[in-house]
Computed example of a mutant assay.
Amino acid sequence: MALMDHFRELKSRLFKAALGIVLASIGGWFLFDMVFNSLQQPVIDSAEAAGQLISVNFTGVATALDMRIKVSLFVGLVISSPWWLYQLWAFITPGLARKEKIYAYGFVGATVPLFLGGGLLAWLVLPHAIGILTAFVPEDSANLLDAQTYLSFVMRLLLAFGLAFAMPVLLVGLNFMGLLSAATMLRGWRWAIVVAFTFSAMMTPTPDALTMILVALPICALYFVALGVAWLHDRKAAQTMERLDAELADY
């Protein structure tokens, strides 16, 4: 494929991906009330438990509109993730062999549920985090949370956990490309655990160790699953090479 053809293909894929995100964001616009109610429910529950004034506050004239647009785009990005990931791989895979294309589609199929699973875990951690953090508000005081700041906090939490859960797919992809061996991953398992617990300690906005452990354990488990897949792939590749060497020797 000529260079200009690559640019035209890239332009087409980017347009299709953007169109999918925009259409999903339109749906997100109509889902805003449901999503926002879910976002502020942990705050409401914390306020009731503490008997204090704790609420999400819109500080500007256009803050409500701005937040609705951001939530719609975020929901659209999540909903359309299978579509824009497919467009990404569709741009990459034309030069790949049939078997390599199957691997590529498999990676996309694994990345989406892992990303969503990480986001779901973050969503389950969120009420616990809000409850602990708002418990530090002094008695007879109010905690008016800026809507923009609160939304950014939740979005960063969801995206960070989603990306962390999808990271093992990247490791397997590097292994299938021959850039990372299972032996290297095995030698680095201690560092992987340290990184997982450090990430969990930084990203879980709660001071308790239990939440950190509950978040870190699935990340560690996914690392060892990726290690197992890489080991099986390396073993199969080694057996294939041995068979080819034997055939060449007989020939």
Rank of each mutant, 00 (worst) to 15 (best):
S80M: 07
G28R: 11
R68Q: 02
L88H: 09
L23P: 01
P42A: 02
G28H: 06
M34C: 06
G76T: 05
S46P: 00
Y86E: 00
D45R: 14
S38W: 13
A24F: 15
P82H: 10
G60F: 03
G76L: 14
W89P: 01
G60W: 00
D33G: 10
P42L: 03
I54F: 06
G28T: 03
Q41N: 10
F30H: 07
Q87Y: 03
P42K: 02
S25P: 06
N57M: 07
L73Q: 03
L88A: 00
G28W: 05
V43G: 03
Q40R: 11
A24N: 09
L73N: 02
Y86R: 03
T59P: 00
M67Q: 01
L77N: 13
L53C: 12
F30P: 03
A62C: 04
S55L: 11
I44P: 00
L39H: 05
S81N: 06
V56C: 09
Q52S: 05
Q87G: 08
F30I: 09
W89D: 00
V56L: 12
I44G: 02
Q87N: 14
L39A: 13
L77W: 15
I44F: 06
L65N: 09
W89H: 07
W83M: 12
I54V: 09
S46C: 03
W84F: 03
T63Q: 09
F30E: 09
D45S: 11
F32A: 03
L73R: 01
N37V: 05
I44M: 01
A24C: 15
Q52L: 08
